[in-house]
Design a protein around this nucleic acid. Sequence first.
DNA 1: TCAAAAGTGTTGCGATTACACCCATGA
DNA 2: TCATGGGTGTAATCGCAACACTTTTGA
Lengths: 187, 187
Amino acid sequence: MPGFFVDNDEEMEDAVKRILYENTGLKDVFMDQLHSFAGLKRHPKGRILTVAYYALIQLDNTKLKTKPVTNYMKQAKWFPVRNVPELAFDHKQILDLCLERLQRRLAYKPIAFELLPEKFTLTQLQLVYESILNKTLDKRNFRKKMQNYGFLKELDEVQTGVAYRAARLYKLDKRKFLKHFQNNVAF
Amino acid sequence: MPGFFVDNDEEMEDAVKRILYENTGLKDVFMDQLHSFAGLKRHPKGRILTVAYYALIQLDNTKLKTKPVTNYMKQAKWFPVRNVPELAFDHKQILDLCLERLQRRLAYKPIAFELLPEKFTLTQLQLVYESILNKTLDKRNFRKKMQNYGFLKELDEVQTGVAYRAARLYKLDKRKFLKHFQNNVAF
DNA sequence: TCAAAAGTGTTGCGATTACACCCATGA
DNA sequence: TCATGGGTGTAATCGCAACACTTTTGA
């Protein structure tokens, strides 16, 4: 949730990237605009206009070990999204809106795949869906559905380094994904 | 698409209401935030941060005869959304994003009903859906689906002043609508 | 009586749900 | 050999799409 100010001659998206980098050392992440918050009373010192963005990174323990790179960001820490401590100002509302938005967008944007490494197993994919939707899904039905969509490329590779049967790896065919969902508006 | 500046001690939503009023004379409208635009090059005089909102008003010819109420808004005019003249700056992109967003939100927010008078016919409702989705729908299927949702209250009234068989009027039960869609996230 | 729109059912198909066991692997 | 997660099929149900004619009304 930490944010900071956009410089005068800096594009807003570049500021998001810079601030994320300063907080975490992460670069080249997927991000999307969430919503703008401009209430006169949201900050004690007067109106602060926040344009909130979310960024999604690949699940990967090494990434969670990144550290703030500037002094004034030293307090930044990672938390599980369903178990976040008390936040400053209206940041809890921002987070809640973000989770709701992610649930909706999960159905037509490649959100889940931005959270996974390039090659992933179906179980990993299901765990991401379950985390975002905050409910459990049936394994067989989930696999059937994903495989029917036709945007998963089955690889000739399996997981390595696991102490049980290694699972098959898949890749996203982003072109097919987008094609599948671009005109797909239900009502 | 005309916008204007938020005053120093004015809530952003109040500014939207005020500016809409100054442009059209309309008050008490439904509105929702769309997206923020802050590109350094979107305006020749430097960065203008626009927080775009859309407002929805009831389809009603009297409302389209409203006039700008301040001098500097004199050029404001109504256009059909699918037939808009060339727009300034990035306003076409803003409009396009708005239409796309409306299509998505139509499925889980009472968008269609904000565009209708309190009492409406099923044909009017279908026309709103068709306009937003930009495609024709089957009459019987549409009616079946809407009636199955269970959030339409059938009234004991019919249209008046039409030169053909008068259609039955309906009302939205907003509580039931919201209940129906709040937890309804597909994937 | 005519023009215009209101109103109405059925069938086939595809998608979704519910549900439980054997398999492969590394330790 | 055991613990762990990988991988698989079927039947019932539900929702969606396709499709055309009769009814009502005011002019």
